[in-house]
Design a protein around this nucleic acid. Structure first.
Length: 126
DNA sequence: CTTCTGACTGAAA
DNA sequence: GTTTCAGCCAGAA
């Protein structure tokens, strides 16, 4: 049951491929509210553990392209340290932190508190 | 064309 | 424990 196909991304997508970017957006959307994930986690889930940077680039396009009208919670994607490295790419440098706080994610000095507990690994959770 | 930088990560010193 | 280096792929100068 529950075979509602959660948009399970195909691990065959390689970096630079349109499918890869689509998968990144798909996983980002699957991140539960109040949870956060890392670029490497998504990249690894897609079979490109070394393409974490490409994930970040894909997210950048997500904001720019605003695919589906900002339905992509890019603010839930952080680096391995739980640091809001992408905050500078948001409309405002505080938008990312404010957004996380609005979801119940405490942020201090551009760093998510209890990042390990908030961490959501697609390879494990999904 | 070459070179550098970048929403990263892991390993080495 | 921190700091530095190298790998990765793509885009911009």
């Amino acid at each position: 049951m529950m075979a509602d196909r959660i948009s399970a991304p195909a691990p065959t997508a390689s970096p630079g491929s349109a499918d890869f970017e689509r998968d990144v957006h798909a996983v980002a959307r699957l991140v539960p509210e109040g949870r956060v994930t890392s670029y490497g986690a998504i990249a690894r889930y897609l079979g490109a553990a070394r393409a974490a940077r490409m994930v970040g680039w894909a997210m950048n396009r997500a904001l720019s392209a605003d695919a589906v009208g900002g339905s992509i919670p890019a603010h839930r994607v952080l680096n391995r340290q739980g640091l809001l490295t992408g905050r500078m790419h948001f409309p405002t440098p505080t938008a990312m932190a404010e957004r996380l706080r609005a979801e119940g994610v405490p942020v201090e000095q551009d760093c998510v508190v209890d990042f390990a507990e908030r961490f959501w690994d697609p390879s494990t959770e999904l």
